[in-house]
Design a protein around this nucleic acid. Structure first.
Length: 934
RNA sequence: CCGGAUGUGGUGAAAUUGGUAGACACGUCAGACUUAGGAUCUGAUGCCGCAAGGUGUGGGGGUUCGAGUCCCUCCAUCCGGACCA
């Protein structure tokens, strides 16, 4: 009986599918556990070895929890709307629905190969009408809701309408209204006016705003989709553009998104990224007065986190985009200011970020410091952003480095308010100094002064305490085709929602995917669509993924997005696994949607994920050959410096370690290199024209580098090939054996043999080729029981704490030990099979049945660890006590003979060492004294 | 520039609370069985040294009987944010 992994895996995958062992019920007496993977975007490239890493980890955990007696929800689906499918459609004329369907089929095939325990009956696809019907429905919920500041939660917008009817716009919603009207006026308004006013409050709203416009993609992008001034996908330039857009009022949830981080188990890095993105800062808004050229007084409101430094203000800076700049500019500065504004306008966002030049212009105007009446010059400069705070700052050069450099550059005198803390060389943003040159604040510690100034400012009525956030409302519309249509009609410039019973609003067929006029989506080219006055934008990629974890709980419900019963049963995702790349996108949006649905009473929890684990990225390990320039000669890596060479990527699959498979190389890419002449590491030459017997000894070594895994770099490794060669169980265990799940590392196929050997060895505990099935019913010995229970404890602990690599090692050790003991006893091996099941499900299921069991091993009970078997014997460790290899011993009177012997010995040594004093405690490690406490 | 993480053999990596550093595996070397081996098995393998021995967890310093682990500092790599007042 050989370990025939191919037939075993095929057989069990088939059986599992037919018998539906992975079907999960919402009715169970067992405790629930929800293990979720970030669902994939089904790209045309298929899976490479990096993708399944997280899936394997979650699969192991799901199976482990099921063995531990939980009712485990472990679903999978596809994030199927998105840009690439549409780009593919534009390039190849294939409808996105068709290419997406094909990609999904391919993904599914690849996933099935690896033997996951997903409940495929619960599969979701965000592009299916039965799914996006509910995405649209939730959008309408957002549209019909506002954020109540008094209660800090979302409420139906009808509440707000009632308030307007009773009180008008004054003092409702716990926050100033952007428009003001009385109750009478509200009652007199027509519906259109009311709708337009309400738009200022809706959680999903439409407005004009500066957006990230990507010309090449023909759409706007959310802030997290723009990286260094170019689009995340494709790397196209992005410019600011004013457009009508839909937004999510996520800023209202800034505080709760921040606070929520404290209750959830995310890595520090992830929490840090989210809170940086939210970017909360507290300070004050302070009003300075400016005298304009015409003599009138204009207020200049600045935002500062350091009101305590107000006596150190040496100049003010206003963002060039602000209209105020024109108003305050004096006649003799007008020319310079206009030139500067033109210059700023000519610079792209990207240039601005790339080159950090200090630029700016004096407006000629002066502001008055409200506390000492000093005249402060007002400048305009692009280092102040129009979009943050009030778009204007008070500059304190001795405390802020940017202000300092600006002052130095333009020769503005610097006031020192922090005494010796300021050295004249650079700014010092300390909060520890005692203030000087600061009027009534002199001698006061800065922290104290901060509160004092805010108090004074509020007393004077020239400002107030203010909290600011970096996070902006999320742009929620795309000028694209392949996304959810908005259930919105535009009548006379006002947006009206479609009634919920008309959902889903189906995505119509189009002939061409090019955008319509003035940055409208392809839907604007369909007469039937525009005739109905329907919104021509579609929702962004993150719409469908913001709530999919809820749909898995109740995937076939036609009446609700998810029944309250189902969401109450499954509750939060207990374990969520995915990459870090979604830190500020998906994870933030889905947290917001969850909070809204919670506020509106649709679900019972306000954080979607209890624990998040980020799997590391698997990088590619690229291989290179060196072609001598202008020839068809390739030189081995060690000799490349002797020639002038070009470096070319070669397919890693043709390289064994670093040694190139010359024959494969000649056949590669339809024989493109069939005539190549290769110079080996020792200088021998392999030429296609010489006879083969010499040519085979040429050893050609490739260069190597770690890069992102991608097809164009020929460094992708397809899991299908490895599964075909070694089996799914080997592949799964090897991916785990590679190292901690959270760590990024380059892929290296070399070590997979070791894991494969382990499985073969494991199999040989049960059956061999010569002797057949060799499991017996004999009673286990102490030594064998020790191996078993040691392993039960180790595997249980390691799996629970996500240390899968050490768990795999523990299996190898146990197998080696049992092989040494020549143990083939059912009493030992059967529990071991259960332990191994999450890691290598196919082989374990096979053995489980060969052992005479029925059903699936997943329904077996997890073996119980018994400490008595793993007690260290005194023989192994002469002075070990209480079953531990390491312990502390006090000089007690009731010590055992061995203890006394050891202690007497130790005491003599210690007494000598301590010059006669007796030790209180002696600590041993395996018979060696390592610690003495006196 | 700011924030986070990580630095251990030729390689991937172990080392629950400070307690024999390098488990386990790859690779390499030697051997066994073989017509043959890219199958299987056995042994060796941090570095220097014939050896005894010395030395060793990025560098330097500190706490401790004892530090990969804790503290300070410097360096390197990776990730994220970067004019956020």
């Amino acid at each position: 009986m050989e370990y025939n992994f191919r037939s075993i895996e095929k057989k069990w995958q088939q059986t599992w599918k037919e018998s539906g062992v992975y079907k999960v019920s919402n009715e169970s007496s067992k405790p629930k556990f929800y293990v979720l993977d970030m669902f994939p975007y089904p790209s045309g490239a298929g899976l490479h070895v990096g993708h399944p890493l997280g899936y394997i980890a979650s699969d192991i955990f799901a199976r482990f929890k099921r063995l531990k007696g939980y009712n485990v929800l472990h679903p999978m689906g596809y994030d199927a709307f998105g840009l690439p499918a549409e780009q593919y459609a534009i390039d190849h004329g294939v409808h996105p629905a068709v290419s997406t369907e094909a990609n999904i089929a391919n993904f599914r095939q690849q996933l099935d190969n690896i033997g996951f325990c997903f409940d495929w009956d619960r599969e979701v696809r965000t592009c299916e009408p039965s799914y996006y019907k509910w995405t649209q429905w939730i959008f309408l919920e957002l549209f019909h809701a506002y954020f109540d500041h008094t209660d800090q939660k979302a409420k139906p917008i009808s509440f707000l309408e009632e308030e307007f009817e009773k009180f008008g716009s004054t003092s409702v919603n716990g926050k100033r209204s952007p428009v003001s009207f009385t109750a009478q006026e509200w009652k007199a308004y027509d519906e259109k006016t009311r709708m337009d006013i309400l738009m200022n409050f809706r959680l999903a709203y439409c407005g004009y705003g500066e957006v990230n416009w990507c010309e090449a993609l023909g759409t706007v992008l959310a802030n997290d989709e723009v990286v260094n001034g170019v689009s995340e996908r494709g790397g196209h330039p992005v410019v600011k553009k004013k457009l009508r857009q839909w937004y999510l009022r996520i800023t209202e949830y800034a505080d709760r998104l921040l606070e929520g981080l404290e209750q959830i188990d995310f890595s520090d890095a992830m929490k840090e990224m989210q809170s940086n993105w939210i970017g909360k800062s507290s300070g004050a808004e302070i009003q300075f007065d400016i005298e304009t050229p015409s003599g009138e007084k204009l207020p200049l409101v600045v935002y500062t986190t350091r009101p305590d430094t107000i006596f150190g203000v040496d100049f003010m800076v206003v963002a060039p985009e602000l209209d105020l700049v024109q108003k305050i500019t004096t006649a003799d500065q007008k020319k310079e200011v206009d030139e500067y504004l033109a210059y700023v306008k000519s610079r792209s966002e990207r240039e601005r970020m790339a080159e950090k030049k200090i630029t700016g212009v004096f407006t000629g105007a002066y502001a008055i410091n409200p506390f000492d009446g000093r005249k402060i010059p007002v400048w305009a400069s692009e280092y102040v952003l129009a979009g943050y705070g009030t778009g204007a700052i008070m500059a304190v050069p001795c405390g802020d480095q940017r202000d300092f450099l600006f002052a130095k550059h333009f020769n503005i005198p610097i006031t020192n308010i922090i005494g010796e803390h300021y050295n004249g060389e650079e700014a010092n943003p300390t909060k520890e100094a005692k203030l000087e040159n600061s009027g009534f604040l002199n001698g006061m510690p800065m922290r104290e002064a901060l509160e004092k100034v805010i108090g004074e400012v509020e007393k004077k009525g020239i400002g107030r305490r203010k909290v600011n956030f970096k996070m902006r409302d999320a742009a929620f519309s795309r000028q694209r085709y392949w996304g959810e249509p908005f259930p919105i009609r535009w009548i006379d410039g006002t947006a009206y929602p479609l009634p919920a019973d008309q959902l889903p609003l189906l995505l119509p067929e189009v002939d061409k995917y090019s955008p319509g006029p003035e940055g409208e989506g392809p839907l604007s080219n369909i007469p039937e669509w525009t005739a109905l006055q329907l919104e021509t934008n579609t929702m962004p990629g993150y719409a469908g993924s913001s709530w999919y974890f809820l749909r898995y709980m109740d995937p076939h419900n036609e009446n609700e997005f998810c029944s309250r019963k189902a969401s109450d049963y499954w509750g939060q995702v207990d374990l969520y696994i995915g990459g870090t790349e979604h830190a500020v996108g998906h994870l933030l949006y889905s947290r917001m949607w969850t909070k809204v649905l919670y506020d509106l009473g649709h679900i019972g929890h306000d954080e979607p994920y209890k624990k998040l684990v980020n799997q590391g990225m698997i990088q590619g390990s690229s291989r290179f050959v060196y072609r001598v320039r202008g020839t068809n000669q390739f030189v081995s890596a060690g000799l490349k410096d002797q020639y002038e060479t070009d470096t070319l990527h070669v397919d890693v699959n043709m390289v064994d370690g670093f040694e190139l498979n010359i024959e494969a190389f000649r056949k590669w890419r339809n024989g493109e290199y069939k005539d190549a002449e290769l110079i080996g590491e020792d200088g021998t030459i392999s030429s296609p024209h010489t006879t083969n017997n010499e040519g085979q000894s040429v050893k050609y070594l490739c260069g190597a580098e770690v890069e992102k895994m991608s097809k164009s770099k020929f460094n992708t490794v397809n899991p299908d090939d490895l599964v075909q060669r070694y089996g799914a169980d080997t592949f799964r265990m090897y991916e785990m054996f590679l190292g901690p799940v959270e760590i990024s590392k380059p892929w290296d196929t070399k070590g997979i043999e070791g894991v494969h050997r382990f499985l073969k060895k494991f199999w040989r505990l049960f059956a061999t080729e010569e002797k057949g099935w060799i499991v017996n019913e004999k009673a286990p010995t102490d030594a064998e029981l020790k191996v078993l229970h040691k392993t039960i404890r180790k595997i249980g602990d390691d799996t629970e704490r996500f240390s899968f690599n050490t768990a795999v090692s523990a299996f190898m050790i146990a197998t080696n030990e049992l092989a040494d003991l020549d143990c083939h006893k059912k009493a030992i091996l059967e529990p071991l099979v259960i332990l191994l099941t999450p890691y290598a499900p196919h082989i374990c299921e096979e053995i489980w049945h060969l052992l005479g069991n029925s059903g699936t091993v997943l329904d077996a009970s997890f073996p119980v660890f018994e400490e008595k078997y793993v007690k260290e014997s005194t023989k192994d460790y002469p002075v070990a006590i209480n079953g531990k290899t390491r312990t502390e011993m006090t000089l007690a009177l009731d010590a055992s003979p061995q203890e006394v012997e050891a202690l007497v010995l130790a005491n003599e040594v210690v007494q000598k060492w301590l010059e006669g004093k007796a030790p209180k405690k002696v600590i041993f490690v395996k018979g060696k004294m390592v610690n003495v406490v006196v």
